[in-house]
């Protein structure tokens, strides 16, 4: 079962690389923003799987904090573009 987690972590990293193409080549800022949001969602699963492989439950707290941070930064950029100022 553990090697299933190894394989899925490797595959997820490859999909992160696919999203990297959209981050680098994306025509406008919105393509880059959605690609970064996708990468953030994928890395949350990578974190949980790596935490499972190492049998260390502390990784779950990191991935929960990670999910919140990813959400906050996406909303900050959206609010800046919508309102013109963040605060």
């Amino acid at each position: 079962m553990i090697d299933i987690f190894h394989a899925s972590v490797i595959i997820l990293i490859l999909t992160v690389f696919i999203c990297l193409y959209r981050v680098l080549a994306g025509p406008g800022w919105e393509n880059r923003l959605i690609a970064v949001n996708t990468i953030g969602t994928k890395t949350i699963v990578v974190l949980v799987l790596v935490g499972l492989i190492y049998e260390r439950p502390l990784f779950l707290d990191i991935s929960i904090a990670y999910a919140m941070i990813n959400f906050i930064s996406t909303l900050a950029i959206a609010k800046y573009l919508r309102r013109g100022c963040v605060c």
Binding site: E30, F71, R82
Partner: peptide
């Protein structure tokens, strides 16, 4: 913990995507 994470992501991920879409639409994409 994982259940909490799943519920959190089911709520926040669509919200973030909606925020990006709303901004992109108002910016004339």
């Amino acid at each position: 913990k994982i259940l909490l994470l799943v519920i959190f992501i089911f709520v926040t991920s669509p919200t973030a995507v909606h925020a990006i879409l709303n901004v992109a639409y108002t910016h004339g994409v």
